[in-house]
Simulated scan of single mutants.
Amino acid sequence: MSNKALRILIADEQHFQRMRIERLFNQLNYYRVAPVHSLEELLTLVEYGCEPFDLVVINASMAGDALDLLDFFRDNAQVRHAFIYEGQRAELPPTSDGDQQNIQVSHTSLPDLASISRLMSLIDRRLPSVGTGISVR
């Protein structure tokens, strides 16, 4: 059962890709999804948000040379989990689901339903229930 309170941010310059990824989340019953089209928008929402994002899904090419995505997500309390796709463009090493990290890097051009489903099963299981200190399993 999906935790409908999870906050998800999708960052991609291409409108079609943002909407496609958002629909994948909607198919899995996640609806608190905010799509953004620029790195500046992402940074503003993350920096000035009143509560952390449970997941940020980002196209690696958005950061270019302006931002080291791994360092940014690793040290940011406002982002609990990150999924970076098209990682080969940024020369990021891929990670696998078994790495159990808060940051996953994929070399695929766009996440599919299976990869989003696997990712969300890990995230939903790790995060505490809303309003309690009990982990969802």
Rank of each mutant, 00 (worst) to 15 (best):
Phe72Trp: 08
Arg74Ile: 06
Leu55Cys: 05
Leu42Asp: 03
Phe72Arg: 06
Leu119Val: 07
Arg32Ile: 07
Ser117Ile: 00
Ala66Arg: 07
Asp12Glu: 01
Arg137Ala: 15
Asn26Cys: 01
Glu91Lys: 15
Ile8Glu: 02
Met1Gln: 10
Val33Ile: 13
Ile103Thr: 09
Met62Gly: 04
Glu86His: 15
Gly87Leu: 05
Leu69Ala: 11
His81Lys: 11
Pro128Trp: 07
Ile103Tyr: 04
Ala77Val: 13
Arg137Cys: 14
Arg137His: 15
Ser135Ala: 13
His37Lys: 11
Gly133Phe: 14
Thr95Trp: 01
Arg23Leu: 07
Arg23Trp: 08
Thr95Glu: 05
Glu86Thr: 13
Ile8Phe: 01
Tyr48Ser: 12
Tyr30Leu: 01
Pro35Lys: 07
Ala90Cys: 13
Asp54Leu: 08
Val36Asn: 03
Asp99Met: 09
Ser121Asn: 09
Arg126Ala: 08
Ser121Gly: 07
Ala34Asn: 12
Leu122Lys: 07
Glu40Ile: 15
Phe53His: 01
Val105Thr: 11
Val105Cys: 03
Gly133Arg: 14
Ser121Leu: 11
Met19His: 12
Arg7Pro: 08
Leu42Arg: 00
Arg20Glu: 10
Ser117Ala: 02
Met62Gln: 04
Lys4Asn: 09
Leu45Gln: 13
Ser2Gly: 04
Met1Ala: 15
Gln27Val: 08
Val136Ala: 14
Arg80Pro: 00
Ser129Leu: 15
Leu43Ser: 08
Gly133Asn: 12
Arg74Gly: 12
Lys4Val: 13
Gln104Ile: 09
Asp68Cys: 10
Arg20Lys: 14
Asn59Leu: 05
Leu43Asp: 03
Ser135Pro: 12
Ser2Val: 09
Asp112Ile: 00
Ile21Tyr: 01
Asn3Gln: 13
Met19Lys: 10
Ser106Ala: 13
Leu113Glu: 11
Glu22Leu: 09
Leu42Cys: 09
Leu67Glu: 03
Pro111Ala: 09
Asp65Ala: 11
Asn26Arg: 04
Glu40Cys: 15
Asn29Leu: 14
Ser38Cys: 08
Val57Tyr: 02
Gln78Val: 08
Tyr31Glu: 07
Ile10Gln: 01
Glu86Ala: 15
